[in-house]
Design a protein around this nucleic acid. Sequence first.
DNA 1: GCGCTCTACTAGCGCGCGCTAGTGCGAGTA
DNA 2: TACTCGCACTAGCGCGCGCTAGTAGAGCGC
Lengths: 355, 355
Amino acid sequence: MGAHVDVSGSQRLDGAAKQRPTMADVAAKAGVSRALVSIVFRDQPGASRETRERVLRVADEIGYRPDSAARLLARGRSRTLGVVLSVHQTFQADLVDSIYPEAERLGYDVLLSAHAPGRAEGKVVEALLSHRCEALILLGPGADPGYLDELGRRTVAVSVGRHLPGVHVDSVHTAEAKGVRQAIDHLVELGHRRIAHVDGGRGPGSAERRRAYRAAMRRHGLAEEIRVIPGAHTEEAGIDSGRLLVAEAERSGRAVLPTAVLAGNDRCAMGLLITFARAGVEVPAEVSVVGYDDSHLSHLMPIGLTTVRQDAVLMAEYAVRFAVERLENAELVPREAVLDPKLVVRGSSGVARAG
Amino acid sequence: MGAHVDVSGSQRLDGAAKQRPTMADVAAKAGVSRALVSIVFRDQPGASRETRERVLRVADEIGYRPDSAARLLARGRSRTLGVVLSVHQTFQADLVDSIYPEAERLGYDVLLSAHAPGRAEGKVVEALLSHRCEALILLGPGADPGYLDELGRRTVAVSVGRHLPGVHVDSVHTAEAKGVRQAIDHLVELGHRRIAHVDGGRGPGSAERRRAYRAAMRRHGLAEEIRVIPGAHTEEAGIDSGRLLVAEAERSGRAVLPTAVLAGNDRCAMGLLITFARAGVEVPAEVSVVGYDDSHLSHLMPIGLTTVRQDAVLMAEYAVRFAVERLENAELVPREAVLDPKLVVRGSSGVARAG
DNA sequence: GCGCTCTACTAGCGCGCGCTAGTGCGAGTA
DNA sequence: TACTCGCACTAGCGCGCGCTAGTAGAGCGC
């Protein structure tokens, strides 16, 4: 894959370094003191109407914009929230969409930082903290509780989607047990008994969902049918699990296939659907598939994904509010918001096949 | 959707505000001057081995971490790159993954900011600039060229995935025409003639791809068959276009269906696959579908998506390097890197159906 | 005239750090 | 002894801004 690099268009730059204008520049040009410019930009009383306008006009002319580094250094507060996410998690993207407006409403700025392969959560957190984020919103944090506890004591931190009992962070998550129970109830009503669960490994909420799955199965007298397939919150994991199941069916006959699979999240469910489609296993005629999250993808999937809905908007609002309230009242203690999930039935679940 | 908010766990905080420790604190505790602590943390010569270790140990003990706000204020440079992205574009997520390591290699920090509904690109850019990002990497910028030109003159900006002739920004994109031509050649070889194109609307690269599609069709003597369906770079757009085509086929018979569709990008192709699957239109037996990007999803799709691969790693590397080189040599003029795309044939394209 | 208040504005310190220009001090020459 | 030289370390200014404590001047009552 070659590349041709082309020096096209534009002329060379004016040799001078592009010096960013400062308040002093504005003040000089407007013929006032720097302090007055500061007053104008902070929208505080103490400047006449005309001076205010003149200052703003001059600032605009010379392209001045406030330097938030200096600003926050001076006032000691950055009013900035740091969000740690994985760019590939679609549900987290949904969360981010809703974090911005709520933060803005409360007068806070938002910076994102992603963990990627080779970029562990700890590094991401350090990056945000060193940029003076006052609080961290961790979307599906994967780090170990000990670290998170320490982090939560050092700064204000909110965990979204992962319940961390005894850890000194705010937490916003859904009542996983309820969601899973709804899903299993739904499947049982449709006549399913052999219901497998592809779990989310160490992903956020996975432990709770796994536990809830086992409990729900037992509650229906299906303890014998419990089967947890180790997975992850990725399409790949769904594909792998799907292949595993298909391979078993090919060896020992389709009767061994579970009649339903509860995936760890929507991405994993997607992977299952993909594999089943490839293998000619019909969903939901032969196997029902249920996801978790209701990320914006789930209603797009070929047959519509039956899934447990987590309300991204509400979760984002709680997360931001928890962070801001803790910042503005240091007396507060970490809190926990547990939201009710809701099963959304679409096309990927149907009555159990015979056998 | 109710929520129960719970004040659980932990004790109330130590009333005192969590004062962030500073260099002075470290210096005092280590019994040296602040300047020496600075030297140690900048890893500069001028401190003995043992002092260095002692300072670092003390810093760790009291939980000191450098304040990048103050740091960049003092040194005048932030060594921070700002990345503007849309969290929902999977290909951009791929790019982000590769931007981090390259930036780190060159000693730069990265901050992300996303445009979301109600958060226009201009605001996102201002946010990053006010956080003292020295350069901006715009992933698939949608703003108008005039604005981008002005932006590019005010600061260092790199556009990724969108070609902006005459605009004062660096640019990294693929040779769209080549990619589209490969795709069309491939389809024509398979016997397709009625090849439609669902375009990407105002999305990055769309105009070029649209133009290239028309040119390639004409080159094959298929001018009569040219059909551009207005779309966007989203699953929704693919779904809508798919519905449109299916509806036509239902009205006027399947013969009117194009035998192949070139989508604006992978997400759009995904939408098409979804709709075709729902409508019982078999891919590739009845319709071939070709995507664009080769985002990490495309090899996951039910049948594997034939798509035009853009090398995310290489694009990210060019973007970062362009930005950094312009920063470190103000004499440089914006450049352009045009990468070769490559058709990846998977299961979604096959020989044209008869008729 | 005096004191008072109110508005419009300014002087200048400090935020946490980078960095230049030093200072002191022991080892190595002449 | 005097004199570099180099190492380990320090003093102190300045980055761009917020913010407190002012000042100057106009208006007003007595």
